[in-house]
């Protein structure tokens, strides 16, 4: 089976001419179906840039990147927008729409799917919220929820569209230790149940043990890839 993420000799630079700054140097990375990979490294090591490239949020410059079967080098803006619909994003901040309820926020991930009716969307969003343990909070707005609950709504939103890949950036940064671990464990369990791979960028040492594999980056290169033993 084809790997959901397959990078070959990906290089990326910001700026041009004198100011050109190389942030990724010939990175190779492969994520297997259902695999949970944690990307770590000091700030400026290029891990966030790598994540935005894989998430089709930035245009590729050099190398090859196949994500969910789509080659990203030279992909058009429209093709990248289409690919993003098949990826679940979880950000450092929950970034929920404040004027929508938790259920409506999750349903936003489904509004791009023309096959679903409004009722099906809301029903599926409700089921997703139930799966993240927020059954009683579906009609609350983000302002009425705690930080951990908001991040769980964000997880429900990322998973609602049945994505083929989940990309997360410091999902625990805004949470305390206990809540952070619970949220990531929840994310892992939900993804594992469906065989969805997760690529997670973090500095947080408390959640490293949840990964199948830890990839360390430094100065735009992958320096160390440790295979975790199955727990």
């Amino acid at each position: 089976m084809q790997a959901p993420v397959e990078l070959r000799e990906v290089s990326f630079a910001y700026g041009s001419g004198e100011l050109r700054r190389l942030v990724l140097r010939e990175v190779d990375l492969r994520v297997a179906p259902g695999e949970i990979v944690i990307l770590t490294g000091p700030s400026g090591s290029g891990k966030t840039t790598l994540l935005t490239l894989i998430g089709a949020l930035r245009a590729m410059q050099l190398g090859s990147a196949r994500v969910l079967g789509q080659e990203l080098l030279g992909a058009s803006e429209a093709a990248r927008v289409r690919l993003r619909r098949r990826i679940g994003f979880i950000f450092q901040n929950h970034n929920l729409l404040g004027f929508l309820t938790a259920r409506q926020n999750v349903a936003m991930a489904l509004e791009l799917d023309g096959a679903l009716s409004e009722r099906e969307r809301l029903a599926r969003a409700g089921a997703m919220l139930e799966a993240v343990g927020l059954a009683g909070h579906a009609e609350k707005r983000p302002a009425q929820l705690s930080g951990g609950q908001r991040q769980r709504v964000a997880i429900a939103r990322a998973l609602a569209g049945a994505p083929g890949l989940i990309l997360a950036d410091e999902p625990t940064a805004a949470l305390d230790k206990q809540t952070g671990q619970e949220v990531v464990r929840l994310l892992r369990d939900l993804a594992k149940g469906n065989g969805v791979p997760i690529l997670l960028v973090t500095h947080d040492p408390r959640i490293l043990d949840l990964a199948d594999r830890i990839v360390a980056m430094e100065d735009g290169r992958i320096v160390h890839a440790a295979l975790e033993q199955a727990r």
Binding site: L68, R86, G114, R124, M128, T179, G193
Partner: peptide, 30 residues
């Protein structure tokens, strides 16, 4: 307040729950 449901929750359409095959991950949508 951050209680997690006791059994690891599954996606509503997870094969373990419905007995069917999981939807193919990330199909192109209409």
């Amino acid at each position: 307040m951050n209680e997690i449901p006791a059994p690891a929750a599954l996606l509503p359409w997870a094969p373990e729950r419905t007995g069917e095959a999981a939807p193919a991950p990330g199909p192109e949508r209409r």
